[in-house]
Amino acid sequence: MPENNSDVANEVLEEGNSQVYELGYLLVPTIKEEDMPISYGNLKELVSSFRGAVIADEMPKMINLSYTMSKVISNVRNKFSTAYFGWVKFTMDSQKVLELKKNLDLDPNFIRFLILKTVKENTIAAKRFIRGDIYKKPKTKKTAENETALPINKEEIDKEIEALIAA
């Protein structure tokens, strides 16, 4: 029984130290599109090697950067105006995250990366649907107005036809 108790205590401690983190990163655009899944898989493996549990993630996508960034790779200053942007959300021990950061600092494939504390819930998708509904509403009203306008035209046409028949 005492052993079980100590196990439970350890688990609680581990849970207490673990936090939800998000790693946003920019990869160098020199990587080929075909090789992208490989470096993406390597990153996920790296996260799980530090006892991290991936909650959500997105494949790196090529984006145009808002400003040019420079990074010195093997004593050559490289300038980038495009990059692959991706992110991973995971839970990890707070001590292990520092080790992960040190590991990523040495990786030449990264232009920049950002590790943030975050929440488990995904907020992006829900917002977009709400906004979509708001924009759709005025359109439906316009079509309703057009439908009401049509019968008036029909009556006018009927009158014109009757006038023609009478003539």
Binding site: G24, L26, I63, L65, S66, Y67, M69, A83, F85, R112, L114
Partner: peptide
């Protein structure tokens, strides 16, 4: 801004 998604 840091990750180049928005301009400075």
């Amino acid at each position: 801004r840091f990750l180049g998604l928005l301009p400075f």
